[in-house]
């Protein structure tokens, strides 16, 4: 039997909002260490990797490893039925073909359960090579979302240039050209407002805005976002999920024709 409980539905609702527009479906691989999901978007340009550790749940039981193929649009609809402060429990029998979501109101007066059919998804797992990235940028998640949204007005592509001075986001097209330069911060009082750049060597990479803007749907999950870059390898956009895990988006770069 599988059972996982969170005392607050907010985080799970935000996780679904962070992936449901990019992925139509995904397999939740459950084991006693937690829940993993890895899936490519339909165009195979980006990859989402979600990790939720079992010790981050208020109750977690996984008698046997279980892979649950979910239609993420349907799962998001079910989670819309939960209040943020509801307790949410995900339950499934071993080798079941359905999964149940139970929502309990804080005052215990209202208990709802939603059953959803599981799907047989034969999604192959991709190996993600360990990489020592040339540049790692930690910055406010809201700032990154704002830059991606603003620059998407100028072009389908954003050029990210990272040097020891700072990180620059550029886009140019018919409207004109835009450059947003962020310098490393040194004396900020709040950690989550800092811009920290660890640079082994400078990089210049080009990415499609539409995927970056899909990734920023995860912004409500974390104050900070981490961008990891190396020449000619996918960008990693990572949002930590406090006390539970993280969501990592990988985006293949664009190259000169």
């Amino acid at each position: 039997m599988f059972e996982a409980r969170l005392n607050n539905a907010t985080t799970l609702k935000k996780i679904l909002d962070a992936i449901k527009d990019l992925l139509n479906e995904g397999t939740f691989d459950c084991s006693d260490s937690g829940i993993q999901l890895q899936a490519m978007d339909n165009s195979h340009v980006s990859l989402v990797s979600l990790t939720l550790r079992s010790d981050g749940f208020d109750k977690f039981r996984c008698d046997r490893n279980l892979s649950m193929g979910m239609n993420l649009g349907s799962m998001a609809k079910i989670l819309k039925c939960a209040n943020n402060d509801d307790t949410v429990t995900i339950k499934a029998q071993d080798n079941a073909d359905t999964v149940t979501f139970m929502f309990e109101s804080q005052n215990q007066e209202k208990v709802s359960d939603y059953e959803m059919k599981l799907m047989n998804l034969d999604q192959e797992h991709l190996g993600i090579p360990e990489t020592d990235y040339s540049c790692v940028v930690r910055m406010p998640a809201m700032e990154f979302a704002r830059i991606c949204r603003d620059l998407a007005q100028f072009s389908e592509s954003v050029v990210i240039c990272c040097t020891k001075e700072g990180v620059k986001f550029s886009a140019s097209g018919d409207v004109g050209s835009a450059n947003v330069k962020l310098a490393q911060t040194f004396n900020v009082d709040k950690e989550e407002e800092a811009i920290v750049i660890e640079m082994q060597e400078p990089v210049v990479l080009t990415f499609a805005c539409r995927y970056l803007n899909a990734f920023t749907k995860a912004t409500p999950l974390s104050n900070q976002v981490q961008l990891s870059m190396s020449a000619d390898v996918p960008l990693v956009v990572e949002y930590r999920i406090a006390e539970l895990g993280h969501i990592r988006y990988y985006l293949a770069p664009k190259i000169e024709d």
Binding site: M40, S46, L47, E124, L126, A252, K254, E256
Partner: peptide, 13 residues
């Protein structure tokens, strides 16, 4: 600019 696919970087495990 040509968009590469993620599968040209990450191979099936």
């Amino acid at each position: 600019m040509a968009q590469r696919s993620i599968t040209s970087f990450f191979k099936p495990a």
